[in-house]
Design a protein around this nucleic acid. Structure first.
Lengths: 148, 148
DNA sequence: CTACAACCTGTAGCCACTACAGCTTCAAGA
DNA sequence: TCTTGAAGCTGTAGTGGCTACAGGTTGTAG
């Protein structure tokens, strides 16, 4: 007897989407940009995926969720495909991305501080000519933040 | 005698760019999407800006630096143009944006934590088959983070 | 008057999708 | 076996907020 549906050896794109949490259109996009290898096709030209695709797409999704750029993921996948290759490069990509994330957090925190200041002063209800939000945006003098 | 160049009443786009820190192309873009009103033109069809444009562009730049979407800025500008209008809306926009920024910070912090974990374990030099970065991305099991 | 920087318009590209139009295929029920 | 409707297909265009050209015109200092 054949295995239950959720354990089948080849699955269509919709099932792959469900199983990985990646949308159908996004899966086709990943194929188009060369992240996901082209799968076999049914007689009627529909994509049929196997276990390897599920794993690879899960890898991609995990990396995307962590904010890695598609270009970085391409490199990470290449590294994971060549097991003899040194891990230095993967480590460098992760470390660099971590730096970027930390930078982004720092910048957002300074935005948060200024926004909080602006939003607190103005509690609404006043005429716009006196609105602290508008005034704060119009007047750049007493703020020391930097461009994004 | 005429005033010094930096104090002139009408300025070309390049000077406006210098004075506000907004690139020439971006200024034209803001005009195109209706954030900055169309200025007068010279006889030769070149844009000539006045004091009001400098102020409005500074407002826009400040708001963009704070991460406000162009659409929000459009509303904020409209509010600042109608001085009788209540400030509630401006306050709501700022408060909502502050919420978004805080959300973003929270999400980035959880990314940071996982990236730090991944990057620390793997210090490079090992073969990719044993690389903690690759493994962590391939194996989703011991991580509880959520999609972006 | 000449040279050259600065300006002009319009279009295409960036990232990582997302949405749609207009078609074909698959699979389950009658 | 036939029908129906969900799911699949390709290709194109749109998102946001710019940025980067190409190929021309204007402004201005020497």
């Amino acid at each position: 007897m054949r295995p239950a549906k959720t354990l089948e050896r080849v699955i269509p794109i919709g099932t792959l989407a469900e199983r990985t949490g990646v949308k159908v259109e996004t899966i086709r996009y990943y194929e188009q940009v060369g992240l996901l290898p082209e799968p076999e096709r049914s007689e009627g030209n529909q994509r049929r995926y196997g276990r390897a695709h599920v794993e690879r797409l899960a890898f991609i999704k995990h990396a995307r969720d962590l904010g890695f750029a598609v270009e970085s993921i391409r490199t990470l996948l290449r590294l994971s495909d060549t097991p003899g290759m040194a891990c230095d490069e993967a480590h460098a990509i992760a470390a660099e991305h971590l730096d970027e994330v930390r930078d982004k957090i720092a910048r957002l925190r300074s935005l948060e501080a200024e926004l909080a200041r602006i939003a607190t002063v103005c509690s609404g209800g006043v005429a716009a000519s006196d609105c602290a939000v508008i005034e704060a945006l119009a007047d750049h003098s007493h703020c020391e933040h930097h461009s994004a």
